[in-house]
Design a protein around this nucleic acid. Structure first.
Lengths: 229, 229
DNA sequence: GCCTGGTGTATTGTATACCAAGGAATGTGA
DNA sequence: TCACATTCCTTGGTATACAATACACCAGGC
């Protein structure tokens, strides 16, 4: 049915250039492999603004936000550099992640329905048995999804937001470590135990299992992540 | 004694205008009572830049950082507003705080020396007995110091940084709530129990006590903080 | 050959001008 | 008196010009 009135303009006037650039840069940084030998860690205000065909001002504001967030480091009159976390810093990230996610697990028990919790279980049915090793890439995605689901089901926005920021750094590690040894299998077992604890509504146990699961990653990084200087 | 060598200048060339403005604004916002009826929540780029006798650009960059941090909200073409947390948001802040501090407590047990832990105890000797109620203001400071000490002794910078940001919001609540009822006394008792757990190097207990202590604040806010809309 | 200082260039920091959008004040007609 | 349109002011958004600094390179003197 044709409208008699000019139908639109719900066009977003609410997102300014700087927001778009911020999202765009963040996405770009997130999806690049920061720790590769030949990674291009240098950003150039002017080149960026020319490439995006806008002026430097909004680019600068976006970069300032990224710096506040810890993704880039701005050196006065030298340039903007993507931050590489040291091993020590990465261990801190994982530690804080553990804190956030285990608290999320407690909240899930308070707030989530049985259905929501059991939805976690269905995420893993495709990996029953030995399939995990065979489909590492898929599993890695599911793995990430699982952890983010716990955050989401906690219904605590602050928790989600903080965790999201940490996740940017976690992701690059997880991708590297999940393929090593039998970590994928071990990971699934851990996850199933966590789900069981949630289903039993045992807050202390769930929190403990979630924390230990993350801290195992920390131990692994401590031992094996030599590519972090 | 006079030096024979020219003694100095490791002078920081690293602090630009925007950094100073950022610090200055943050300090100002932190120390004002955001929740007072007549609080001036509106900021004006132009007025600020005129008052500080600089251009708008660095002011804008400072404000952008503060927005990223959640202290102010910038509404396009409307203005910049200091953020008032709602009750729900404040409860989230306290929840996340609990997560961070209880993890810090675990780390204290791993990393702090006996001396460092016992230094926590000495903070409270002046408030032995019934003195807490009589010196509410002093106690409020000690209270804050106690919690920050736990973070600091965890030797985890990320934990400290995140907690500091939350603390800005916690502070305004604590100042209001500590004077109510017998919360000061209760608070001291909690703190002493926490210290005992740390001294016994009982990580699970310490983490639990710290978390419960904070969550009690959450319950109190839930019930009594009607000034949060 | 090495040290010292100058100079040029690249890059970010800051200032300023102009724009667009929202909202309030004002005017106008019923 | 009220509803509505118009105007204007306020305010943040963007673009651009200029200033300041870091670094590389080079020339000249010892």
């Amino acid at each position: 049915m044709a409208h008699t009135k000019l139908a639109i303009k719900p066009i977003n006037t609410n997102f300014s250039l700087k927001d778009k650039i911020y999202d765009s840069l963040k996405q770009a940084i997130t999806s690049m492999n920061i720790y590769a030998e030949d990674a291009e860690l240098r950003l150039d205000e002017r080149r960026l603004s020319e490439k995006l065909e806008i002026s430097r001002t909004p680019v600068r504001e976006a970069l300032a936000r990224l710096e506040q967030e810890g993704l880039v480091h701005i050196v006065p009159r030298r340039g903007v550099y993507i931050v590489r976390k040291t091993k020590a810093e990465m261990l801190e990230v994982v530690t804080v992640w553990a804190a956030l996610e285990s608290t999320a697990a407690r909240l899930v028990i308070e707030k989530a329905t049985d259905d929501e919790i059991s939805s976690l279980r269905t995420m893993f049915i495709t990996f029953e048995g030995d399939k995990a090793k065979a489909h590492i890439d898929e599993y890695s995605e599911t793995n990430i999804e699982f952890h983010q689901s716990i955050l989401r089901l906690s219904q605590c926005n602050l928790l989600c937001d903080l965790a999201d920021n940490l996740f940017i750094h976690m992701r690059s590690i997880r991708d590297r470590t999940i393929a090593e040894q039998d970590r994928a299998d071990r990971s699934i077992i851990d996850h199933l135990h966590i789900i069981e604890a949630l289903e039993k509504r045992d807050a202390d146990l769930a929190a403990q299992l979630v924390r230990e699961h993350s801290m195992n990653l920390a131990l692994h990084i401590e031992k094996h992540a030599d590519y972090l200087e």
